[in-house]
Design a protein around this nucleic acid. Sequence first.
DNA 1: ATTAGGG
DNA 2: CCCTAAT
Length: 614
Amino acid sequence: MEANVVAVEEEDRNELEDSSVIAVACSVSSKEIADPVVYKLARVVGDGIYIPATDDDMKAEDLIDHKSSLHLVLDNNQTAVGSSNDDPFDQEFAPIDCEFEELLKFEDPSTQGERSEAVVDTSIDLGKLNPKFEEVTRSESTPLDGQIDQSGVRKLADPLVGPAENEPSTSNVCASWKPDFSMLKGEICLDNLSVRELHATFEATFGRETSVKDKQWLKRRISMGLCNSCDGSATTFIIENSKVKRKDNVEDCNSEDKSHNKDPVTGLEGRNVSELVGHNQTIQMEGHFSGGSKTLQSASPKHHIAFEDDNQRNKRVRKPTKRYIEVSESDSQEHSGRLVSAVKSSGSGSRTRVRPVHNIQPVRKPLVTRQDSLGGSGVEIPYVSRIRRGRPRENVMALMNFQPCGVGMTAELVKEAHDGHNPQSDEDIENQEHKATTATEWLQHPLIKESGENEQYSEQSEDVNINSDDGHMDSYADIDSDDNILTVPTAKGGMRRKHHRPWTLSEVAKLVEGVSRYGAGKWSEIKKIAFAACSHRTSVDLKDKWRNLLRASFAQLPAEKGVQNFKKQSSTPIPAPILLRVRELAEMQSQVSPDLKAVKFASNNINDMKSGFL
DNA sequence: ATTAGGG
DNA sequence: CCCTAAT
């Protein structure tokens, strides 16, 4: 991987210390494969040599650019995404915000104007900005444009940067330019600009005026705006020979990115790597979206619009489903001899669904039943195989959980009660996991965390083992086999199925992030990568959850006035920011259903009127 | 096996 | 979540 800085404003050395030089540069190469520009922090020392940020610096960057703000918010949602730093969610989902932005970049340039109405929320503590840092564009591989002394950079590079540079070459940047930016000619130095000029730039950048006088603020915003558009919809434009060209062959963007998941990347370590990996994912997504596959049309921003206009995505038509039948029903129909009832699970007795089976007896057969002691209810249930799906349960601990009043049960209840204080609770592990996993670290091979006494719950090790062909993978398999559907009293009186795990916020976050990377629909991928640690949550679950999120995001927005909507929200209310992102992603991927879109537009207009951003 | 959708 | 149908 090479650091190509095509254009960097380097004048005004005396002010280097607090300059906010932005390199809006896009490297070009002979190869046609497109890659988004990868930004990386670096500092410029006196002689103009670029020093990749140190580890600590990178941390700082994370804090600043990823955690603290960078929420892109459509201004029709003045609720603004986590404008405050103390919002816990803000912190928690910041990484995703970062990725989220990536997605925004897929906008068709023609729509960029509107899009750029999006507010770059920079309500971060500017004081935290280390002025020494500058954003330097960096393209992957493709050694050329040696405007910067490569070796110099390398020598000075922080060791941690090293691995990142081994990154497989995806090469070449094809960045798109927002029309207005062409006039920027690829480089600007905001520091030289007066407030007035900044205003002009701002206008050019966002297509609107601002009255804000704060230089810092302006610079910040503009820089963000530029960043967003620079490596934006990489599928439409390319920068070549300092000229913005329309990219006619979208296919070019497709590439062999796939391989990146495995190989060197996984083995790499360090923050920088993780960051790179993150970007890599983005690249991958681009591949999906701009590649010649079917996904192209629905996802590629370029086709986005036309496609929307056309008949909405043709849903997969499906034959009217012969629904499974209720027990009572089956009884009455049993004379046909066509049915054998199977109890799927018990415990919550209500969960007695019957499925049709083709292996049938011609004559009515007495229903064999047996006592079901599971829920302690003693209900008689048809005695057929208690089919279980998923992996066979092998863990003794799991079995313990079946004792209605036994130790296992007690343990479970205790666990429930503690809810968060018990170190072994799933959620704790969940959260733990999340904290340790910044979005950018995602792809790193899940490290085996100390498998101590918690092992029985360590769903993580399970997956790790799967991946690393390490024999004994199923040992801790599922504690939550679906036989386990017992009901557990919840605080609010209700009874909830034991293993209906409410979605954790971090899970939701991961999901959103995943969708942003792979696109909705790539659920197995998302499952594999983002939810590697969650043995529960099947890809179907992800899909379902996403569906819900989608619904929620569009439903909640119009009424967003009501401060957080104090409704019965029995389940974890999904923070607005998340919903916003969900909505965005959905929009971007043309996953928006017509009616919902209507809602959206309505609210859009209304809010547009009100929102006086800037 | 994975994905989309309906319940 | 669960289930089926489509791919």
